[in-house]
C-alpha cells in the first residue's frame, strides 16, 4: 500500500548513491546523546580492554598515541535519518588495539564515560573498518562529538560508534547495550534500514 503525500514534490537532489535508504544529507554535525557531555581530559582518559577471562589491559593516552594511526575519510549515518559524507578523522584501528585478544570472542560490549554502552559482533570491529578516533577534520575531537576519543564504525548507524569510549569487553555471548535495550536494532546496518527492533 502506498500512501502519497499530496503536494509533496521532493527535491530529487538526494540521489547520491552514498546515501542509504531513508537518510538525507546534512552539512552540519548534529550531536545526539542521552545526557550531559562528560568532561574527560586526555591525561585521565583510559581504555580498558577486558578479555574473555576477565583480564584487563589498560590503554592510556600515551599508549594510544604510540600505536599506528591513520587518517581516513568516511560517510556516517545516524538513525535519526541524517547522513554526513566525506568526514575525515584520525584514529587507531580497533584491531590494533585488540591485538591477539579478540581471537576467540564473538561479541564486544563497548563502555563509555557517562555509562553508555553498545554491543557489536567482534568481526565488525576487527574485520571491517573500525577505529578509536581522536581527531576530526584535523583538530582534536571535541567533547560534544565524543572527545577525547570515540569509537568509529562507519558501516553501522552512528549510535554504535560510541562517544567517550573507555572500555571494550570481549564476550562469547551478545549482550545488548543502551539503545539496544530501548528498542533499537541489535545490529544497525543503515543499508538495510535496521533502525529498530524487528527491522
Amino acid at each position: 500500500m502506498s500512501v502519497i503525500s499530496r503536494g509533496f514534490g521532493g527535491r530529487g537532489d538526494n540521489d547520491d548513491a552514498r546515501i542509504p535508504p531513508g537518510q538525507h544529507e546534512t552539512y552540519d554535525f548534529p550531536v545526539l546523546s542521552a545526557g550531559p557531555t562528560p568532561a574527560v581530559s586526555r591525561e585521565e582518559w583510559g581504555l580498558d580492554v577486558t578479555d574473555l577471562d576477565g583480564a584487563v589491559t589498560r590503554w592510556g593516552w600515551p599508549d594510544l598515541m604510540r600505536a599506528p594511526s591513520e587518517e581516513f575519510t568516511v560517510d556516517i549515518h545516524c538513525v535519526t535519518t541524517w547522513s554526513k559524507l566525506d568526514t575525515s578523522w584520525r584514529g587507531v584501528r580497533v584491531r590494533d588495539v585488540l591485538g591477539d585478544l579478540a581471537t576467540e570472542a564473538e561479541y564486544a560490549l563497548v563502555r563509555c564515560y557517562g555509562g553508555y554502552t553498545t554491543n557489536l559482533p567482534i568481526g565488525d570491529l576487527v574485520d571491517r573498518d573500525a577505529w578509536i578516533a581522536y581527531e576530526y577534520e584535523g583538530d582534536d575531537l571535541e567533547s560534544a562529538h565524543g572527545g577525547p576519543a570515540r569509537l568509529l564504525v562507519p558501516h553501522l548507524y552512528l549510535w554504535k560508534s560510541a562517544k567517550w569510549i573507555n572500555g571494550i569487553e570481549l564476550h562469547l555471548d551478545d549482550e545488548p547495550g543502551f539503545w539496544e535495550t530501548l528498542g533499537y536494532h541489535e545490529y544497525g546496518d543503515p543499508w538495510l534500514e535496521q533502525r529498530y527492533v524487528g527491522d
Binding site: 546523546s33 545516524c78 555509562g115 548507524y157 554504535k160 562517544k163 543502551f178 539503545w179
Partner: peptide
Amino acid sequence: MSATERAEGAAK
C-alpha cells in the same frame, strides 16, 4: 539519539 552515552541500568 545516535552516538551516545549514559545508561544507569534503570532504563530497562
